[in-house]
Amino acid sequence: MFVIRCPYCGDRDMVEFTYGGDASKKHPDNIEEPDQAVWQAHVYERDNPRGWHLEWWQHTSGCRSWVKVARNTLTHEIAGTAAADEPLALPVSEDAS
């Protein structure tokens, strides 16, 4: 049962949030992007790391903000969170293999 720090509301239980998946993959900003391969990569391909993962959670039962979360997929530890428009660096995975 994670505690996720919403940048706007503070520490909240995970049940208030909805998972939104990988936040490191790039959604084409440009809706006009014509290259199917760019969209293909965005829609289907994942790094799926075992270790630190940058991901989206929406504070659905709260302020409804999309929050960036740096979470370890192996230990479930959360290293930090940030608002959608703020940068968030991932710690270096010990499990780099």
Binding site: M1, Y19, T73
Partner: peptide, 13 residues
């Protein structure tokens, strides 16, 4: 559980 995980442990919700 609804989020990426490699941890073979569950959570309460």
């Amino acid at each position: 559980d609804g989020y990426n995980s490699y941890a073979q442990r569950g959570n309460m919700p």
